[in-house]
Write a protein that binds this DNA or RNA. Structure first.
Length: 500
RNA sequence: GGUUUCGUGGCCGAGUGGCUAGGCAGCGGUCUGCAAAACCGUAUACAGCGGUUCGACUCCGCUCGAAACCUCCA
C-alpha cells in the first residue's frame, strides 16, 4: 500500500514517515485518565485527538489495536484530614470503596466521551488489574541491575541507567542536572538520588489500595502501569504511544527507561503528544482549579460559560486546531465553532437533497474521478494531504468548507454539478465529516421533538380551517398525512394523531 | 535556573523562502413581502532588531513577551 502518512515524532522532534512495525497491523497506546474526578475539557483533547488518529489509520486500511488505560492505582489515598482522628475512624467505615470511585468516574468518563462520539478503544485495561504484570516487570528491572530495594520499596536507579542508556532522550533533559536540581520532596530520603523514581511503594497504613509483593504490601509506581500494559497487549515493539504533553516528563521518560531497562531495547516507535487547552492563556488543569467539566459545557452551567455548547461543537472546536498547538478556550471561539459546524452540516444536507431520487444518503457513492472537475478533485486531494501531514485537521476542515461553498453555489444555480460530481462530493464529504473527523449531525437527534411540534402546528392550522368550514384545506391535510401513514382522528376534545 | 514550545489581521486558528488558508465578527453588493440563510466582492497580519538571500511572515542570531514541564495533572 502506498502510504504517504507522516507524523511528528516527539522522540526525534521532527515529522517522520509512518511505517508500522508489522503492517497492516498497528499498535496504538494512549495514556488514559486517572479516574478520581469528573472529565473536563482537558480530557477531551487527547481523547478526540487519538480518536481521529485511530479512525484515520483505520481509514487508511490498517488493522489497529488501540489500547487506552484507566489509571486507578497510585493516588487513591483517603482524604487526609490529619489531626481530626476522631472523625477519621468513622470516615474510614463510611467511606466509599476506592473501587466505587473508580467505577463511578470511569462510567462518567465513558459517558461523556460517547457524547463526543469518541470510539471505544480495542482494550481499556486498568492498572489495578495488572499488578502481576507490573511486579514481573520490576523483577526484570532488578535482574538487569537498574533498581534497588529500600525498606520494602523499589526504586529505579536513574544514575546507573544513564551510564548505559540515555535518560532524557524524550524530554531533552540532562540527567546530571536533574540529579542536582530536582526538588527534594518529603519522604524521599530513601532514594539514592532525587531523580530516581518509585517502581514499588510500601503502603503507609492509611493507604487503602494495597497488594502483596515480594518487597512489601504496597502499590506500583506511577509510571509502571503503561510500560506493563503497553507491552502486554501490543508487544515488546509497537508503533505509536500517545498522551498529553504534560505527561512527557517524567511519565513517558520513565516509561521509556523502564521498558529499556527491562527489555534491553526501545519499545515505542513514534511518540505523539497533544498540546494543552488553555483558558486565559493558562493550562486548564486540576491543580489550577480552572477547569470546566464536560457536563458543565454541555449544560452551560458554569460561571465562565455564556451558553451551553453541544458535544459536537466541542469536538469541532478541538479539531479546528492542530493537536500539537495549544488551544485557547473562550466563548467567542466556541460560538464561532458552533456556527462553522452548522454551516458544514447544512452544506452536507443540501448536497443530500441533490442526490438522485431513491438514493440512500447513507450509501457509499463513488463518482468516477475522471468525470469530476479538477477543482473539486484538488480540494479532495488537499483534504487527504492535510490528514497525511501529521493529522492536520484544521487544514482538512478548510477543504470541507471549500466543498460547501461549491455545493451552496450549485444550489443557488450559480454553478452546475454533474451527477458524478454530486456523488463524488457526497462520498468525500461524508467520509471526512463522519468517518474520519467523527462528527455527527446533532439536529437529527431531536426528531421526535420536532415531529411533535410539527404535528401540533399542522393540526392547529387544520383546526382553524375547520372552524372556518374550509373543509378542502382540512381534508387536504388529513389525506396527505394519511399517505405518510399518519392518521388523524377528530374528537370532541380536538384532534389526535398517531403513526400507523 | 534548566528542558521544550510558541508569539500571524477584531477573535479563534492554518501555512509557505516569491503564488487566497479557513471559520466567526465587520464593511459593500446580489437575492429578498419581513426575517434568516446563501452567494459575490473587500480591509486590516505575520512581536522587535539584525543577518543570509535576487527576494523572508517563512531560514539563522539576538532582544522582548507568553506557556508547558522540572511535583499529581490530558
Amino acid at each position: 500500500m502506498e502510504n504517504p502518512l507522516v507524523l511528528y515524532n516527539t522522540l526525534s522532534r521532527r515529522k517522520e514517515r509512518f511505517e508500522p512495525v508489522q503492517p497492516p497491523y498497528v499498535g496504538l497506546y494512549v495514556c488514559g485518565p486517572t479516574v478520581y474526578g469528573d472529565p473536563h475539557l482537558g480530557h477531551a483533547r487527547p481523547a478526540i485527538t487519538f480518536d481521529v488518529v485511530f479512525r484515520y489509520l483505520q481509514h487508511l486500511g490498517y488493522k489497529v489495536r488501540y489500547v487506552r488505560n484507566i489509571t486507578d492505582v497510585g493516588h487513591l489515598e483517603a482524604d487526609q484530614d490529619e489531626g481530626e482522628d476522631k472523625i477519621a475512624k468513622k470516615a474510614r467505615i463510611e467511606q466509599v470503596e476506592p473501587m466505587e470511585i473508580v467505577q463511578y468516574y470511569s462510567d462518567r468518563y465513558f459517558l461523556f466521551l460517547e457524547a463526543l462520539n469518541v470510539k471505544r478503544p480495542s482494550i481499556e485495561p486498568r492498572a489495578s488489574g495488572h499488578i502481576i504484570e507490573q511486579i514481573a516487570l520490576i523483577h526484570k528491572i532488578l535482574e538487569a541491575g537498574f533498581g534497588y530495594v529500600v525498606n520494602g520499596s523499589v526504586y529505579f536507579d536513574v544514575e546507573k541507567y544513564s551510564k548505559t542508556y540515555h535518560y532524557g532522550i524524550l524530554s531533552g533533559r540532562v540527567p546530571e542536572e536533574m540529579m542536582t536540581h530536582t526538588r527534594a520532596l518529603e519522604g524521599q530520603e530513601e532514594k539514592r538520588n532525587p531523580a530516581d523514581f518509585a517502581l514499588w511503594k510500601k503502603a503507609q497504613p492509611e493507604h487503602i489500595m494495597r497488594w502483596p509483593s515480594p518487597w512489601s504490601d504496597g502499590f506500583p509506581g506511577w509510571h509502571l502501569e503503561c510500560s506493563a500494559m503497553g507491552t502486554k497487549y501490543l508487544g515488546e515493539k509497537f508503533d505509536i504511544h500517545g498522551g498529553g504533553m504534560d505527561l512527557l516528563f517524567p511519565h513517558h521518560e520513565a516509561e521509556i527507561a523502564q521498558s529499556q531497562a527491562a527489555l534491553g531495547h526501545e519499545t515505542v516507535r513514534y511518540w505523539m503528544h497533544n498540546n494543552m487547552i488553555t483558558i486565559n492563556g493558562q493550562k486548564m488543569g486540576k491543580s489550577l482549579g480552572n477547569f470546566i467539566t464536560l457536563e458543565e459545557l454541555f449544560t452551560g452551567k458554569h460561571p465562565a460559560l455564556q451558553q451551553a455548547y453541544s458535544p459536537m461543537t466541542i469536538r469541532f472546536f478541538i479539531l479546528q486546531a492542530h493537536y500539537r498547538g495549544t488551544l485557547d478556550f473562550s466563548n467567542e471561539a466556541l460560538q464561532a465553532a458552533e456556527k462553522g459546524l452548522k454551516k458544514l452540516m447544512e452544506g452536507y444536507t443540501t448536497l443530500t437533497r441533490m442526490l438522485p431520487a431513491g438514493v440512500n444518503p447513507d450509501e457509499k457513492l463513488t463518482g468516477r474521478p475522471e468525470a469530476v472537475a479538477l477543482p473539486i478533485l484538488q480540494i479532495a486531494e488537499s483534504c487527504k494531504a492535510a490528514m497525511n501531514d501529521d493529522f492536520n485537521t484544521p487544514m482538512a476542515i478548510a477543504g470541507l468548507f471549500d466543498m460547501v461553498r461549491i455545493i451552496n453555489s450549485a444550489r443557488d444555480g450559480k454553478e452546475t454539478l454533474s451527477p458524478e460530481e454530486i456523488a463524488f462530493l457526497h462520498n468525500t464529504l461524508s467520509v471526512f465529516l463522519f468517518e474520519i473527523l467523527g462528527l455527527k449531525d446533532e439536529t437529527a437527534n431531536n426528531q421526535a421533538e420536532q415531529m411533535n411540534g410539527l404535528m401540533e402546528l399542522l393540526l392547529s392550522i387544520r383546526q382553524r380551517s375547520r372552524e372556518n368550514k374550509d373543509w378542502n384545506t382540512s381534508d387536504q391535510i388529513r389525506d396527505a398525512l394519511q399517505k405518510l401513514h399518519i392518521v388523524v382522528k377528530d374528537g370532541k376534545e380536538g384532534s389526535t394523531w398517531r403513526i400507523e
